[in-house]
Design a protein around this nucleic acid. Sequence first.
DNA 1: GCTGGAAATCGACAGCCATCGATATACATA
DNA 2: TATGTATATCGATGGCTGTCGATTTCCAGC
Lengths: 117, 117
Amino acid sequence: MAVDFQLAPKRKRAAGERCCEPVVYPDVQRDEAARMAEVAKALGDPIRLALVDVLRKHAGKVCVCELVPLFDVSQPTLSHHLKKLRDAGVVDSERRGLWAYYYVIPHALQELSAWLT
Amino acid sequence: MAVDFQLAPKRKRAAGERCCEPVVYPDVQRDEAARMAEVAKALGDPIRLALVDVLRKHAGKVCVCELVPLFDVSQPTLSHHLKKLRDAGVVDSERRGLWAYYYVIPHALQELSAWLT
DNA sequence: GCTGGAAATCGACAGCCATCGATATACATA
DNA sequence: TATGTATATCGATGGCTGTCGATTTCCAGC
């Protein structure tokens, strides 16, 4: 995760000089921005975005063995992408025997979605 | 940009066997994923996400000199983030004299927003 | 036990990213 | 022309990312 930003004091400006209407600090709090940016970052790869798309369209849980052949990357690489999505809190997984099933965590995308709307 | 993903046959074919036409992801979907991932990646940094938040809340155009003091990063770093957002097609800028004004491109976030909904 | 398959992890590598200070560019004003 | 200011670009740096092949872990079935 990138370095967190902070509020800094406004710089002084010559009296009466004005380039535009004053701005106020973003409504989004820092931790909100950090959370949403984390989710956005997880979606910021075409493979991961398509993975989430597949998982969302399957209301249930999808076996990794069904996901791997859909993409032109190796199994370890896909596993890496799934881990990124898990670390970002977008998906979760469940093991049944040899197989692992992934699914989108309900409401994981809700905050970002609401902000974008 | 990361390596573009491809779609492969859904099932591994046995040697020489020909069971069916491979299932192919529509190209539209791949392009969509690439475009949306690019936008998501641009939003995948807390500073850039907060920048977009500020610009969106101000329906007009905001001077860079108002943005810089809001964040605890140097002016070159903020300029770099603004350039990232510009390259991703999220914002655009306009120069008036010494000052540069940034604004969110209308509907730039629409596709991603609709997909997330 | 042993063998085989599914998935995760490891180790390495090239490329990208966020950040800074220094510098360049462009414009305004004296 | 000379000076100052706003913004962009440059160059360097440490850290992160996506990718792979090889390996490991875990489980099922023999």
